[in-house]
Every structure is written in C-alpha cells, then in structure tokens.
Write a protein that binds this DNA or RNA. Structure first.
Lengths: 103, 103
DNA sequence: GCTACTCTCAACCACATGGTTGAGGATCTG
DNA sequence: CAGATCCTCAACCATGTGGTTGAGAGTAGC
C-alpha cells in the first residue's frame, strides 16, 4: 500500500504520463492514439504506459492487431487521500496570506 | 506550473520523503530530528530535504548551529487539484463495484 | 501466402537518483 | 583557543529512468 503510493506518485511525476491519463479520461484509446500527440517513438510511449500500468492507473488489453488502453482511476483515490491530509496546512497558508493582504 | 507538478509528484514518490513531511506537520524540526527515525546518514537526509525544498514543500533556515525545517504545503494544493479532476472516475469505479456486489 | 500494420521487447545510451564517505564551515561549550 | 556538534558539499558508486533503434510476434487485408 505504501509502495503503491511510491509507484502512483512516480507515475504522475512526468508530464507525458499525466497527458496520457488526461487523454484516457475521454475514453479508451489505442497505443497509437496515445502516441500521436508526442514526438516520441511508439516504443517510448509503450514504456510510459508500462509505468502507468505498474501503478495500476492504466489497463492494456489486446484487441485484434491493436492494444486498447483504459483508465483505472482507483489508485488516484489513495493518492488524493494522502495529499488531502495536508489540506488544512495549505489552507492555513492561504489564510495567512489573505490576512497579510487585508492589512 | 506544469514542471512544478513534476517536481511535487516526484518529491512525494518516496516513502522517506513523505515521512519527513508527516513529521513536519507537527511543527518545525531540525535536520537532526528529521534524520533520527531513519537508518540513513544525515547527509542522505539532507539530500532528500533538498528534493523537498526544490519542490517548494520545505523551507530550511539556519538557526545557530542547527538548521530548522518547516512545512510549506502550498504546492500540495496544486497536486491535489490535479488529482481531484479524476475524482468522478474513481467514484464511477466504486459505483460499478458496489453495483456488482449488490447483484 | 505475402505484405503492411500495431505493438512489445531487448539492447543500448546518456543522465538522474539514492545512497555512501570524507572534508570542512559555522556555531556552541568549556 | 580547543573541541564537539550540526549540517552541507563534493566525489563516488550502483542502479533506475527516459529515450533511441532494430528485431520480431501477432493480426488484418489483398
């Protein structure tokens, strides 16, 4: 569970990977679809997908000649829960900032 | 802003670093305090703190012979906001699961 | 069956990361 | 001043990461 968080946060720490997740929010996509927006080789994209898959954020399934990727958002719930425990700290900071502005 | 997210998520992708942030929720701590729970050398902890500092999550300030570390939670607000855009997807998944259980 | 297409895998590369040790700057204490 | 303490920095090492290319497995279409 803890090392899962490692994997999830690591998966999220790369802009291309976050962009791929974003693309998958619109529905399932083939690897080719996901690769299209990038300069990267398809093999490179495949490696990124492997990282996302390792974190449980993406599922790949063969469909004929193509491979379909689907979003699996469940692990993000854990990540969100972890981050949210800090909510009061950044709110405190915003409060202090607002107070400062008001003075 | 985008590469900030890279840095924040990367900083969070390591259990020791998350533990250091957790420790800082209780208030400011010296580097020595933060290092105590770990087997790691103090220099190793210092490097982790540098990563957290680079992501804007920790601020270090010299105080006499010691160095005081403070939590800066603001960047977590951005991370949280990003993750939260996926909320409906993991809720959908939970809904489907619950529906499955009910059947 | 042959060819074209989609994708993964292995090998390779340059570079980043996570850890160590040792040196040394500052500061406190005696 | 001398010594101990706290911490950072540089150098180093092993391993991981992010990208490439080339080969090849599997499928679709002619």
């Amino acid at each position: 569970m803890v090392e899962d968080l490692d994997a999830v946060f690591h998966a999220l720490s790369s802009e291309p990977r976050r962009a791929m997740l974003d693309a998958l929010t619109a529905g399932e996509r083939t690897v080719g679809d996901l690769a299209a927006p990038f300069e990267m080789s398809v093999a490179g994209v495949s490696k990124h997908l492997k990282v996302l898959e390792g974190a449980g954020l993406v599922e790949r399934r063969a469909e004929g000649r193509t491979t379909i990727c689907a979003l699996r958002a469940a692990p993000l719930a854990d990540a969100s829960a972890w981050v949210r425990t800090y909510e009061r700290f950044w709110e405190d900071a915003l409060d202090r900032l607002q107070k400062l502005v008001e003075e």
